[in-house]
Simulated scan of single mutants.
Amino acid sequence: MTQSSSEDRRPRESQITAEPAIVDQCQKDYRHGIAARSTAYRQMHRAGATNPS
């Protein structure tokens, strides 16, 4: 087994926390997620979920 260097064990910066939340970007992300949420809702409904909300 190989030893990892201390550099390999440091936490990596997350892109999510590295970028500030901007209202315009959040709204844009929400609008782009409409299709994904709709698809997920239909899939859960087909799978028999009683209240997929």
Rank of each mutant, 00 (worst) to 15 (best):
T17I: 02
G33T: 06
S38P: 01
K28Q: 14
T17K: 02
P11L: 05
N51Y: 10
P11I: 04
R10T: 09
K28G: 01
A35Q: 05
P11D: 06
H45R: 13
A18V: 06
A47M: 12
A40L: 15
S5M: 01
S38N: 09
R31K: 13
Y41A: 10
P52E: 06
Y41G: 03
H32C: 09
R9K: 14
R46F: 02
S4C: 04
K28E: 15
R12C: 11
Y30D: 04
T2P: 01
E7Y: 01
C26V: 15
S14H: 05
N51H: 13
V23G: 04
I34T: 08
A47P: 04
D24F: 11
G48D: 03
T2Q: 10
D8S: 11
M44P: 04
D29L: 14
R12P: 01
I16Q: 03
R46E: 12
A35K: 12
R31W: 05
R37V: 03
R31C: 07
S4I: 02
N51S: 08
Q15T: 03
S38F: 12
R10F: 01
R12L: 10
D24H: 11
M1Q: 11
H32N: 15
Y30N: 07
S14L: 08
A47F: 11
A21T: 07
Y41M: 07
D24C: 08
S6V: 06
P20R: 06
S5A: 00
A18C: 02
R12Y: 00
A18K: 03
T2L: 10
S6A: 14
A18M: 01
Q25A: 13
S14Y: 02
D24M: 11
R9I: 07
T39I: 06
Y30S: 08
R46D: 08
A47D: 13
D29A: 14
Y30K: 05
R37M: 08
E7P: 01
P11N: 04
E19T: 05
V23W: 07
H45I: 03
A21K: 07
